[in-house]
Design a protein around this nucleic acid. Sequence first.
DNA 1: AATGCCGGGTT
DNA 2: AACCCGGCATT
Length: 414
Amino acid sequence: MMPNTRLGKRSPFGALVSPETTRPGVVVAMGPQGISRVRGHSDLKVRGNVRMISVSSCWALNTWLLSQVFFQCDDAGDPRAANTSCGRSVSTCIDVPRRLGSEVDMDELTAAMVLSSLSCSPPPPQGSAHKDTTAPLTDGGAVELSVSGSSGYWSVDPKSSAPSSPTDEARGGSATPPDEGLDMELDQVLFEEPAPRKRRNSLKAAFRCLWPACGKVLTSVVGIKRHIRTVHLCHGGEHERCSRSEEDFYYCEINQWEEPHCQSPPSAPPPPPPSPPIGSALSRSAPSPCSSFWQVQSEHSYQAPPPSQVVSQAASCLLTAPPTTCSRQGATFRVRSVSVGEQWLQQHSAPCRSVFLCSVVPSVASGGALTAVCLIFRRIRSEAKKCRKVYGIEHRELWCTACRWKKACQRFLD
DNA sequence: AATGCCGGGTT
DNA sequence: AACCCGGCATT
């Protein structure tokens, strides 16, 4: 169930955050078990055990989620579906099957990565099962699934009418088992969406280590994971930290075309080589910049070093969907990069204080469709005493400037 | 209630 | 840019 923890104004999305998420890169989509209703979609339920999905991109999450769901007949719950008199039984109830005991071995992370890699695979051969079984999903107000791999979002829009290809329409009258046809549609949506495939196929993917001052680039996931695990995570008797899949948080996929994204905006000074900011103990574990456009900028001089000293893009390194994409989907997200970077630095110096999640939220502009929101950071109040506590309200003149201005304390950092 | 601080307004 | 504060989340 989604918790009632509400992000404050500092949250770019104001979305709910699960307290179960205590580490970056960890996704909590739903509760441990049971039924969760997607916010804004009282009739949309997600059932089962979908939690702790580690993904390296929203596309991976989307793919994983969609691969886990199937639709079952529940016309009573959806007036639009009820109005349809066609034989197809499609509902808005997403049923996620529980993991069986034998399936537990399948690391969800691995599943996400495999699915992510599948999005790069060549399109499935046309003309066999797809042709025979696929029927238009939107006949009679059925559910449309749209996936944008490049933007990392997917949506379920019962209201919209999906554009059907001529071949789809030609097949419209064929008698097809509902679920089977829907599954095939899902497959098509998942694996035949042209944008990501085209983009990825034309690129040479690589994986960059985000560990500070490393930046090693390898061409395989296995290689980069091994590198991170052996070089960064598992050396020097820190075996207790060598939890599997932790290395996934320390690399990002890069492509050749993304390399220019490593550069700061033209108006900003070029980012320094990946190295922790001098004098900032908070950044010891902060990954170095990678292919991303989020750049830390100081909104106020008291808040952070200038951009030439601190560039933290690690957060978005885990994403393929930039905030501009999210904005395109209708949700207006303010990108206050100073908060992201600063919070990232601070949170990673204090374990279990950050929240990084991909969640599915309704998008207003897309007609209530579900949109995968990819990144939410949240600052948990630190336990360090601040100027107010140290000096007291009566000695306000001793406070740091930030505290006097009711900003984040810069003297007693987390 | 006290605290921390984001977001936004004012100077 | 500096400064201030309403308001919200958290403790």
